[in-house]
Simulated assay, not measured.
Amino acid sequence: MHYMETTLWNKAMKLAELACQSVTQLPGEERYGIRLQITRAAVSVASNIAEGWTRESKKERSHFLAVAHGSLSELHTQLSLCSRLGWLPSELLETPFGLIDEISRMLTTLRQRSRNG
């Protein structure tokens, strides 16, 4: 199966779209601060899922899925901080936070299967 056909990658792409759209509401002075970190982390999740999916060895695949999972945690932290600071309204983050939870569960399952299988 091609990575573009997976539910995991498609959810990660949707999350990246939402994250990139949401940062436009951040204060202008954050253009090169947290805004850049959010977009990089969001793009990294989908990108590392894609790269891991195309690797032949289980070890390499596991590495890229772990990196994607780490980037997902970074993104969650960054969006949470923006919410706490009042930079992004909580209602704007409901869908991204839901996707983060789903993607995290999917990555956990894939990574466990990779270790055990």
Rank of each mutant, 00 (worst) to 15 (best):
L99S: 05
A12G: 01
Q37D: 04
W9I: 04
G70L: 13
R111F: 09
W87S: 10
L85N: 01
T77A: 15
E56F: 15
W9V: 00
R113C: 14
P89M: 05
S73W: 08
P27D: 11
M13G: 02
E51R: 05
G86E: 05
E51H: 02
H76A: 15
S83M: 14
L110E: 05
S80M: 11
E5N: 15
S57V: 03
E29D: 15
N10R: 15
H76C: 12
K14R: 15
A16K: 00
T7K: 14
W53F: 10
W9P: 03
E5V: 04
A46T: 03
Q112D: 10
V43M: 14
T95C: 09
A66G: 14
T54H: 15
N48I: 00
T6W: 03
E56M: 12
T109R: 09
A68D: 02
H69Q: 07
Q112I: 13
E56K: 12
A46F: 03
T95F: 03
N48K: 03
W87V: 00
L85W: 06
L18Y: 02
M13N: 04
R84W: 07
V45P: 02
A19N: 00
A41G: 06
S71T: 02
E60C: 07
F64V: 01
Y32K: 10
A16V: 02
Q78F: 07
K58P: 11
K11N: 13
E74K: 04
R111H: 08
L107R: 01
M4T: 12
E5G: 08
L15K: 01
